[in-house]
Design a protein around this nucleic acid. Sequence first.
DNA 1: ACTCGGCGTTCTCTAGACCAGAACGCTTAT
DNA 2: ATAAGCGTTCTGGTCTAGAGAACGCCGAGT
Lengths: 251, 251
Amino acid sequence: MGAKHPVRTTEKTLAVVEELRQRGRCGVTELASNLDMGKSGVHNHLTTLQEHGYVLKRGDEYQLGLKFLEVGGYVRKSMEFYQVAEPEVKALADETGELANLLVEEQGMGVYLMRSKGEDAVDLDTYAGMRAYLHTTALGKAILAYLPESRVDEIVDRHGLERETPKSIGTREELSDALDDVRERGYAIDDGERLAGLRCLAAPVKASSGEVLGAISVSAPASRVSDEDLHGELPERVLSAANVVELNINY
Amino acid sequence: MGAKHPVRTTEKTLAVVEELRQRGRCGVTELASNLDMGKSGVHNHLTTLQEHGYVLKRGDEYQLGLKFLEVGGYVRKSMEFYQVAEPEVKALADETGELANLLVEEQGMGVYLMRSKGEDAVDLDTYAGMRAYLHTTALGKAILAYLPESRVDEIVDRHGLERETPKSIGTREELSDALDDVRERGYAIDDGERLAGLRCLAAPVKASSGEVLGAISVSAPASRVSDEDLHGELPERVLSAANVVELNINY
DNA sequence: ACTCGGCGTTCTCTAGACCAGAACGCTTAT
DNA sequence: ATAAGCGTTCTGGTCTAGAGAACGCCGAGT
């Protein structure tokens, strides 16, 4: 549902921010023409944002500043779940040598809170703050499997089930089956569903109330993860990390 | 200099964001009374921000969402300096076992791009995105020492030289002396200036043009850093990390 | 040297948005 | 029952946002 009385000026500001983010450094005219706004209006928004650190001027082009990271970093740091999970995810990365990730759900999307690279980790284009559809990653499936069914329906209604690759989930039935599997095993697997050749294993973190707080995963190239690993040592490690977080978060 | 034609509505939106950040989760009435705005106005801003993911509603209280981290994380990821320096800072943390940091200057302030904890690292309350006055940290001094003098004056004029502790820099003369020392040694030291008992050593990273891109540091408790360390092995390691970044960034 | 095109910026003016304040429905405390 | 206080909705008057035109500047083309 849209806001009843949206502040249109704020929406324009956010549109400027979004456009500036997509284009990276650029000028007033370029922004204005792509936003269907006059140059003066765009200019006013930019200087206002600049005044508050959200936008920088370099020469006579504009770009987004690090204020967003300041606010976002503060929000993340304030999350108890992040504080508790961060060292465990790092430890998991060091221990396995692979890429370990931490994801939470927000407004029906997955948000990566952090990623930690082990010694041999693949270099994916994920980054802290990045969003992903929940049904397309092991992390997301681990979360969906432990959300109330009504919530899952809401999320699917809102964001759909677009396939990212031919192997990924694309229908409600496939999703339902996949979530059953996750609940049976206690962890989620992504075998090339998001990126060919990439295997990923994720475990949910639940509060004592049963509510899902997020999920922890390890991503590695298929060449280094045998089928036995995928159902043997690797899940043990990821589940153990998730379990430690669960214990620490409930004091 | 303030914006010539500020967008007042945007400024109100940003004020709402800032207030919400400081208070954490809270209600419309509380925000409105502290912002000198009517409840309806605050409500309109909040629902608009919510619509775009910048704000979340939990029950009938509001809080900041992870959209800020998404935008900020994207901005950070897009910085070449971060991409190149990130693995080196991580390596430095692993190697020393202490806390390693990466800082850049923006609008006269220092912004932490990341921190990486080694095995024995102290747990400071810094976080990615956090700002600090440049004159109060070794990282900041390492940057100031290699900025043009006119730029340093500008920054001091704008942000002053407030002392954070009795040991820290508080006058232009002290700053000037400190920056001379940095240039002589090639690295900056903070011996309890920011936090009693904490020693910190930082090296600048410069582009081939001579421009300072940022600085890399290691922070450790004084009990683990002898005076010899402070002028022996530790600077070597930090300087070496900075040097690797310099080499990699100039292709 | 001069012009021209295009940039970021400034100015003016009015159509239209913002939002204080009042009113509403709801929950909780008394 | 009642009241107090919350988030939300609604409306009208005030003030602002921003299109469009004009400006100063710079670099390219002639």
